[in-house]
Simulated assay, not measured.
Amino acid sequence: MIKNALITGATSGIGAAFARQLGEKGYNLYITGRRREIIEKLAQEIREKHNVAVEVIIADFTNESEIDCLLEKITSVDIEFLVNNVGFGHEKKFLDDSYENQRKMIEAHIESFCKITHLVAGKMKKTKKGQIINVSSLAAFTPAAFNHLYSSTKSFIITFSEALYIELYPLGINVQVLCPGFTKSDFHRSLKIQEKTFENRGLIRWMTSEEVVRLSLNSVDKRGGIFIPGWSNKILYTIIKALPRKLYYVMARYMKM
């Protein structure tokens, strides 16, 4: 039986790890990204290693017309597994940047994310089968003065995914919202975080993208809703939730990326 998976933001990091591991599980893949040379190389690697079909769709998730083209390409495809992984950060604070530049994050993390989920989850609801993993972040629970829209939009993804899980679980469709913490990937490198920063200190324990994805896929069949990979991240989440909000606000003023 042919199984199809759609993975957005699959060029590198967590998205690429999902592509490799779902390919290993026998899924034919539809993968999206912006850097053609890199993602085409990934696609060829997966085809040769796992003997599955891989279609690359180049799409900028801040561009509405490109998302509409993506939706048109997959509208007739039965997607059994959806991974919404598109995400990026800003180097500049909200008020230190143009609104147009900041708005792109809303377009990618909310507008495009919702469009794709509405199409794919709607079809899953009719067939009563499928799995969805929406990638959020531990940062969604930790608003700070350097990542206004990142933490805010990732928080939206959590609430939205939990609501979708509540609706779809009785139909046999599981929805997981994955909230990784410190993960070695191009995401942090794009924010000019140096390699020496990837050091374990106390509860800050860096994970690889492969570890995060393996734990996520091992869990998705067992439970939906929020999934936080790694014991240290679970402890950090518990501490964050237990802190009095006023105390957290004081601490957050001194946080640095």
Rank of each mutant, 00 (worst) to 15 (best):
I2M: 12
I2A: 03
N4C: 12
N4E: 12
A5Q: 09
I7E: 00
G9S: 00
G9W: 00
A10P: 03
T11P: 12
I14T: 03
A16Q: 09
A16H: 01
A16C: 06
G26H: 06
Y27E: 01
N28F: 03
I31A: 09
I31S: 11
G33Y: 05
I39T: 09
I39G: 03
I46C: 08
R47K: 15
H50E: 06
H50M: 03
N51P: 07
V52Y: 00
A53C: 04
A53F: 01
V54M: 02
E55W: 12
T62S: 13
N63C: 14
I67W: 02
C69Q: 11
L71T: 06
E72F: 13
K73G: 02
I74E: 00
V77A: 09
E80I: 07
F81I: 05
L82F: 01
G87R: 09
E91Y: 06
K92T: 01
D97E: 12
Y99I: 13
E100Q: 15
E100M: 14
Q102M: 10
R103F: 14
I106W: 07
E107G: 06
E107H: 04
S112D: 04
F113I: 03
C114F: 04
T117D: 00
T117I: 06
L119D: 08
G122I: 10
M124V: 10
T127L: 14
K128L: 04
K129P: 01
Q131M: 09
T142H: 01
P143M: 06
P143K: 05
N147L: 08
H148I: 09
L149C: 06
Y150A: 01
S151C: 10
S151P: 04
T153G: 03
T153W: 03
S155Q: 14
F156S: 12
Y165F: 15
E167T: 08
L168Q: 09
Y169W: 11
G172Y: 06
I173C: 11
I173N: 08
V175Y: 07
V175I: 14
Q176Y: 04
V177Q: 12
V177D: 11
F182H: 05
D186W: 07
F187P: 10
F187M: 03
F187I: 04
H188K: 01
I193Y: 10
I193K: 02
N200V: 12
G202K: 08
L203K: 05
R205Q: 15
R205V: 15
R205G: 13
W206H: 07
M207W: 01
V213I: 05
R214C: 02
R214F: 09
S216A: 13
L217G: 08
G225P: 12
G225Q: 13
F227R: 05
P229G: 14
K234N: 13
I235V: 15
K241G: 07
R245K: 13
R245M: 08
K246S: 15
Y249L: 15
Y249I: 15
R253W: 02
Y254K: 10
M255S: 00
M257K: 10
